[in-house]
Design a protein around this nucleic acid. Structure first.
Lengths: 210, 210
DNA sequence: CCTACCGATCGGTAGG
DNA sequence: CCTACCGATCGGTAGG
């Protein structure tokens, strides 16, 4: 309840970004079908009519939630990629980076958002497409650019950075992501899957020419 | 409309495995929420009452569909794995195997079934868990066993077959699977993603000690 | 801005 | 009488 909301006769409930955040909470907790517009309105402490005034349909509200989620996650890897470029021990740097990637992708909210978007991908292809681009391809390209720099530095030998970025990513997260997507993620702890094996296989193919 | 159905007062519509097949079609076409029990009954040419007599609820019907799907896909890779064991050119054999894996996992029905199961994983965790085990872990273990044999034959050097099987699998299918799950798969052709890069990275780590 | 309410549709079950 | 099946309709809830 912000001061601006109190100062005039403005809405006492949450609107704008706060409304999106409330809606995101409900979608992540209950899934798409399990989310009712009543529940979102209640969570945001506004009436359903006000909710529909900001977002003309449930699909539109969902699209706004996914859009804001993708915006927030944009360039999330940037500082960690920079640290690898500035690092000295390539293997150790890549393992640290891989652990951060793994922890991010396998977190509960990220898993549930993935389930949400993939589940509606056929009905809302443009929502899924923008999620893929903003939350995924963008980060892969950033990783590829980092690998290209490591190649320039002579720390790695990467003929095709984009392919290599895809390979490192899926070596690290493929198996645990698949397992967790097919598990009730709300009940379990994220297992700390080992990441060194993946990095070592990656380095066996892309390590500097000795 | 079989003869046995006509001979007596037996059901003229589809029951048993045929009913499951009809339900699978509808679920794959329309998704979970988009599937109505009326549509399933209509597809199977039986009444809803008859449908409910065989499957007490929509969730139970869905569970039966997933179970039969997993059963059908069990050991689907077996003949192709055997061919690798009997082959002569390890790299060529693995590329052929990888292409078959990719084509299988990225087919339209398999993708839609994955979306279906992951989408309901929180509501029906036991359904998702059995799908994971029967349709996935089982095939990974079979691949691991094949890699272990290749190690025995001296054609590969695999310290941990299960880890290596996971790595090969995700090198091959990770990126295109992710892309296709976030795409309206009904409208597009499956792109023939190159598989040789993945196999070569795998072999750079696990190739025979020269 | 909200309460009250609608037209439509769903999963599931009754009577015959 | 039974089994197998259907037309009709229920209670409850969704989006709007």
């Amino acid at each position: 309840m912000t001061d601006t909301a109190r100062r005039r006769g403005r809405p006492s409930g949450r609107t704008g970004a706060d409304l999106i955040a409330a809606a995101r909470e409900v979608f992540l907790e209950s899934g798409y079908a399990g989310t009712t517009m009543d529940a979102v309105a209640a969570r945001a402490q506004i009436s359903k009519a006000s909710l529909y005034r900001e977002h003309p349909s449930k699909d539109a509200l969902f699209a706004a939630v996914v859009r804001s989620w993708a915006d927030a996650g944009r360039d999330a890897m940037r500082p960690h990629l920079d640290r690898v470029v500035e690092g000295a021990d390539t293997r150790a740097d890549l393992i640290t980076l891989a652990e951060i990637m793994r922890a991010g992708v396998l977190s509960r909210d990220v898993l549930n958002m993935r389930r949400l978007v993939t589940g509606e991908a056929r009905r809302l292809p443009h929502v899924a497409a923008s999620y893929l681009e903003e939350s995924w391809e963008r980060n892969i390209r950033a990783l590829a650019e980092t690998l290209r720099i490591l190649d320039d530095q002579g720390r790695l030998a990467i003929p095709d950075p984009l392919t290599a970025a895809d390979q490192l990513t899926w070596l690290v997260i493929g198996s645990p992501l698949n397992r967790l997507l097919l598990t009730d993620t709300d009940r379990i702890e994220t297992p700390a899957a080992p990441v060194a094996n993946a990095v070592d296989l990656f380095l066996s193919g892309y390590g500097p020419r000795a």
